[in-house]
Simulated scan of single mutants.
Amino acid sequence: MQIQTLPAAVQRPRGTPGATGLSPTGPSQPLQAIRAVASTNLGEQGQRGEAAAAPAAGPLASPFFEPGLQQDLAAAQQGLAWLDGLAQKLQGLKKSVSQQLAGAGSTAQSEQSLREFGTAWLQRRRQAGGMVDGQLRVVDAGQARQGFALRGLDLASLDEAGTETLSFAIPGVAAPIAVTLDPAEGRAALVQRLDQALAPGGLRATVAGETLRLSCKEAQWPALAEGLSIKGEGRRFPGGQRVRALLDAEPELLQPQGWSLDGAAAQRRTLGQIVAVQGRLGEAQAALQQRLGEQALPEPTDVAARGQALLAFSQGFDAAAAEPLYQRFAELAPALQGVRREHVQQLLLTAQR
């Protein structure tokens, strides 16, 4: 009886992945192509005889994965879903108020629609993925900011109050931040100096029209509003002990709690506000949809080369799997998993005697 040389795959110990063709002369060309691609893209851990000592290869990372990309996509999708829901509630409110003005709707229905819209707007910070600020502007995820004014520090005081060093104690910041203001430098330079000094504490300073606007991240605002303290030299702020800073928050764009439905005149004003808000909502929705479209097809580093390698691997594997040789191996492989290399070698030596 002639004993055929068993495939090299049986030389692998139990549980070790990987296989070659059954031909004693070596693997078929498609399987060679698979091995070449896998070696390049999957990080093959050594040659056939060293497989037992080599660690198992890790999972193949997606060539379309970029750090932070999935989080950005999720935040944008969440923000767009919230905007869509808000737009639907606003449309429902518009319909109710219009019907009430036409004498075909009820006050109770309009009030219910207004409450639902107001509740949805109040949930912006929790449900918009950090992508929409209080002015209905689309921002980077988690970068929505709260604007505010600091009483005693405005453009007029910058220009006229004289040179003074201010010390800001910002909640969550270890050391106070000091900044010297000298009107001789000019308004633009003073605002820039103030902005640069406060930036490490998360605060920024800009000029909005004729107003000095300070801002912080929305998540920082509650602690800042309650805990910011400041000390001066007796010009803009008193010296000696620090005093609590008085901050006036920038109002949000929408104030549905102030919309009235009492009487036809109030209903018409509310309807006009609804139409204006619909325009801003549409702009925000379009901006987020565009951002999602830009992020849907990322171009990570060397994606083209890795994509071609994966395509070649897929095509080569499909071709090999279609060969009768591969089918035979697929049937034999389960029976060969328990065969150890030394057993096969002993069997071959016995047959040659």
Rank of each mutant, 00 (worst) to 15 (best):
V277K: 00
L253F: 15
L60E: 14
Q32P: 00
A51L: 15
L83Y: 05
V139N: 03
A144N: 07
A287W: 03
L311H: 12
R213E: 11
R125H: 13
R341M: 10
Q99T: 05
A188L: 13
G272D: 15
A33Q: 13
G118T: 14
S28L: 12
L90G: 05
A75T: 08
L155W: 04
Q77I: 01
L114D: 04
A184P: 07
I170F: 01
R306H: 10
K217C: 02
A61T: 13
Q32N: 12
G293R: 10
L271S: 12
V207G: 03
V132M: 07
Q290N: 13
L198Y: 04
L153V: 02
D195F: 06
F168D: 00
A87I: 04
G43D: 09
V243T: 12
R137V: 02
G279C: 07
A108W: 04
A249I: 07
Q127V: 01
A178E: 14
L122N: 12
E252R: 09
L288H: 06
L214I: 04
Q2H: 14
G46L: 09
E164T: 00
R35T: 09
Q135S: 11
L6R: 13
F313Q: 11
T211I: 14
L150I: 11
L214M: 15
R12P: 02
L261D: 06
K89C: 01
D302G: 02
Q257C: 03
T16Q: 12
Q91E: 14
Q327P: 02
T270F: 06
A75I: 06
R244A: 15
L136H: 05
D159Y: 00
A219S: 15
A188S: 14
A276V: 08
R124P: 02
R280G: 03
A333I: 01
K89D: 14
L254R: 07
F237L: 08
A320G: 09
P7R: 09
R14I: 14
P334D: 11
P63N: 09
T163K: 12
Q4R: 15
A144P: 02
L254F: 09
G172R: 07
A56F: 11
Q88A: 13
T301Q: 14
G134Q: 08
L347G: 04
L90P: 02
Q352F: 10
F65V: 12
R12K: 13
G152I: 00
L31F: 01
A305F: 08
G129D: 05
P67A: 09
